[in-house]
Design a protein around this nucleic acid. Structure first.
Lengths: 260, 260
DNA sequence: TCGAATTTGTGCGTATGTATC
DNA sequence: GGATACATACGCACAAATTCG
C-alpha cells in the first residue's frame, strides 16, 4: 500500500524492472494479456496500457498473433560529430560497436552506406530564414535526404541552402553532379566558400508518423534531432539542416578539447 | 476512405495538425472528451487515447478538472556545451532565449542557478567501469546532482570518479569544500590533474518514473541524455557522468570548428 | 486442409474518483 | 450542491495474424 501510482504504471514498471534485471532477456516473450490479467488481477485495458508504455519506451515490440517481445535496445552505433568527420555526406562516420562495448576503432566494418535525395526550390519558411539569417520568403534550395546503412534507414535529413550562395554555380544541387558525395564543406569549397564552423543544436522528441515510417520504427518513439548550421568565415550561414535519427539505435559523439 | 490508420491516430494527427497550423494556439483548450466524442463520433476510450498520444508527444498537457491545454513547446533555452563553457558546475551555461527567437546573446538574465548533491562511495558497476577504463568493482565516488534554474528542476546528473584519482586529497567530495563550485576541471586542477578532453555521447529516451518526478514532467516524456567522460593528458578517464535534461525544454549546443 | 485456440491491436460502453468552476 | 472535466479502471467485443492439432 501507499503506492499511489496507477495500476498500469505499476505493472509497466514491474515489467521494466524484470527486463533491466535480466529476468526477461532480449527476444523473450512478455506474458500475454490473459496471463498478465490473471497475475496482476487487472483488466484487459489496464494490462494493455501497461504494455503500451513499455512499447513506447522502446523496451518491447508487439508481433501480431505471436506476442510481445523484449527489444534489443543496445545502440547499433555512434555518429561521430567532430572536426573532420562531419563533412562526409553521411554527416558523420559511423561506429558500429557491436557485442563488445569497446571504444571501437574505426572499422565501420564493411557496412554499405547509401543515400537518396530529392531537391527543390522554395521560399524560406520563417524558422529556416531565421537560422540562415535571411528574410522569410527568400529562395532557398530544400533537399531531403534519406541515409541507409546496410539497406536499413538510419538517418533523415532536410537541408536548406540560400540560393544567393550557390545560384548559377555547378554545385547548386547537393544531390547531383561530381560534388554530390563530398558533403557541404567539399561542395561549397568548390565554389570558393570556406566553411569554418558548424553549430549543432541537439534535442529530441517523439517521432512523427511519417518519420516513424521512414525510419522503420513506431510513431511516438524517441528520435534525436540535430539542427545544424554551417557558417563561413564571415559568420554567414551557408547551410542549415535538420537531422533525425532513431534514438534507440544511434547516439551522437562529440569531443570537446580543452585547450587552456 | 483508404485511410487505414486507426481512429485514435487519425484524431490525434488531426489535432496535432490543428496545433501546428496555428488554429489551436499555445494555451488554448483542446475540445473536451465529450466534445471530441461527439465531433468524431468515437468512444470515450478512443478520444482519450488520441489525447494521450498528443500528451506523450508534448503537444498538450492535462489539468485536472479544467481541460487539456496546448503546451508551449518552445525550448526554454540551450545548454552550451563547448570549450570553456563546459566546466561550470552546471556543466554548461544557459541561454534563455525567450519570446524572441534571436540568436540570443549571453544574458542568462538573472536566473538563479542552484544545485543539490549527495555523494557516496560504491564499487563501480560494469558499464561505469568500462567507461572509466577500470576494473568492475573498483571503488568509485558516486555523486548525484540536481540542478535548479529559478527553483525549477532542469538537469539531473550522476557522476562517477575513480577513487584512485582523488583519494586522500581535499577534493574527494565534489559537492563539498572550496572547490565544489568549480566543476570537474577546476576541482581536479587543484590536485594537479589536467583535464584536456571531454567526450560526450548524446542520446535520448523516455523518462523513467523517478526522472520524470525529479524533472517535473510525466513519465515517458522524452529526455536527452549525455554520457560525458573527462580525460586527462594520458587519455585516462578521470570522471564520467550521466546527464539528463527534459527534451521539450532544453537543447544542447555544440560548436564544431573546422581548422583545415 | 481445415478449424480451433491464442494473441495482438483496436474499439465501445460504463463506472468511479477527484479536481475545478 | 451541481455541472463539467480529467484520469483511471473494468468488461466486453471483433478483426487479423499466428500456432497447433
Amino acid at each position: 500500500m501507499g503506492d499511489s501510482r496507477p495500476v498500469y504504471l505499476r505493472i509497466a514498471d514491474d515489467l521494466r524492472r524484470r527486463i533491466d534485471d535480466g529476468f526477461l532477456t532480449v527476444g523473450a516473450r512478455i506474458p500475454s494479456r490473459s496471463e498478465l490479467k490473471r497475475v496482476y488481477a487487472a483488466s484487459d485495458q489496464t494490462v494493455d496500457r501497461a504494455v503500451r508504455v513499455l512499447k513506447a519506451a522502446g523496451y518491447a515490440e508487439g508481433q501480431f498473433g505471436r506476442g510481445v517481445f523484449v527489444t534489443d535496445r543496445a545502440p547499433l552505433g555512434t555518429l561521430l560529430r567532430t572536426t573532420g568527420a562531419v563533412d562526409t555526406p553521411f554527416a558523420a562516420e559511423i561506429h558500429t560497436a557491436r557485442g563488445n562495448g569497446l571504444p571501437c576503432g574505426r572499422p565501420s566494418g564493411g557496412t554499405s552506406l547509401t543515400w537518396e535525395a530529392s531537391a527543390g526550390e522554395t521560399p524560406a519558411p520563417a524558422p529556416i530564414a531565421e537560422r540562415l539569417g535571411i528574410a522569410p520568403g527568400e529562395p532557398v534550395l530544400r533537399t531531403e535526404y534519406e541515409y541507409l546503412a546496410d539497406r536499413h534507414p538510419v538517418q533523415l535529413a532536410t537541408s536548406w541552402e540560400p540560393l544567393t550562395v550557390t545560384a548559377g554555380t555547378d554545385v547548386v544541387h547537393p544531390e547531383r553532379g561530381p560534388y554530390a558525395r563530398r558533403g557541404v564543406r567539399g561542395r561549397l569549397a568548390a565554389i570558393g566558400v570556406r566553411v569554418v564552423r558548424a553549430r549543432e543544436l541537439v534535442g529530441s522528441r517523439p517521432a512523427t508518423t511519417p518519420e516513424a515510417e521512414a525510419l522503420g520504427c513506431t510513431a511516438g518513439q524517441c528520435v534525436t534531432v540535430v539542427e545544424r548550421t554551417h557558417f563561413d568565415g564571415d559568420d554567414r550561414a551557408v547551410e542549415t539542416s535538420d537531422i533525425v535519427v532513431r534514438a534507440d539505435r544511434w547516439r551522437l559523439e562529440y569531443t570537446i578539447p580543452f585547450t587552456s
